[in-house]
Design a protein around this nucleic acid. Structure first.
Lengths: 144, 144
DNA sequence: TATTGTTATACTCTATAACTATA
DNA sequence: TATAGTTATAGAGTATAACAATA
């Protein structure tokens, strides 16, 4: 079987861009006393209201890890817990208004920090890059 | 000032693909008892021999953090430390043969895990995606 | 019985501060 | 004086195991 160079080159590019993006998000999160995972959860909660166990599964974390993470964010007023309407065992996780505002601010900061990088592409190339990434990305949690 | 949709869409795609790639690398690293950072350092050392402080700066970590990280990897035979030839204060970090083999194995594993995702593009699209990512990526440490 | 979530515990990663050696 | 690296220490993130409540 022949070696597929295009896959190697793509993997390399994806990995390097991933580390770069993670570096930016880690720093922006840290400036607001948030871990990368907390920042990620806030991003997910912007348009979803998952139960604890689904969120843990999607993040690849143990449910006990999420208990602590949500508790810390809740004590800061960024997330809330609410009983799931249909399953009395389950707890839904929700973002608060303050959490939403903070998330959007951090997103704007990330956009500004990465502007020099994304600006090396013209608008047509940016659209094309976003389109090419789309099929590669795993679908996120279904809404609800 | 008008909102630039193409930048928002691109940022969103980059962030989501970054979390996906990080998830894969984190899991593969964990299967080999390596943290994501250790995996990343091994990747960097494949073709570089940086001093501790340059590596720490590039990774955005404190030098004390790197001391521990390299010590743990050294005790497992994956990296080595050697005095810098020109500055007696400095220590260079090198990958060992065992470290190189492990790194390449993990890279192959990542490639296999991501094959279903990258395979949703044809070869021409993969090349195009890799090319579009290139300008966005921050240049890594200069060799040596 | 199986699943959801929490708590107690232990380990790893990370930064800060204090120190030694060299520039 | 400033820089390179190490060590001691403390805080946050994570998983495992044991538990209570519900399906």
């Amino acid at each position: 079987m022949a070696i597929d160079e295009s896959e190697d080159a793509l993997l390399d590019g994806l990995v390097r861009s991933a580390f770069q993006i993670m570096g930016v998000l880690t720093r922006i999160g840290a400036e607001h006393d948030l871990s990368l995972t907390q920042l990620r959860v806030l991003g997910i909660l912007r348009d979803r209201r998952p139960r604890m166990s689904d969120l843990a599964a999607f993040l690849g974390l143990d449910k006990s890890t999420l208990s602590g993470l949500v508790a810390r964010a809740e004590s800061r007023g960024l997330m809330t817990r609410a009983p799931n309407p249909t399953d009395k065992r389950a707890i839904d996780v929700l973002i608060t208004d303050a959490g939403r505002e903070l998330t959007e601010q951090m997103y704007r900061e990330a956009r500004a920090v990465l502007a020099p990088a994304t600006g090396r592409l013209d608008e047509r190339q940016r659209r094309q890059l976003a389109q090419l990434l789309e099929p590669v990305i795993t679908p996120p949690l279904s809404p609800t």
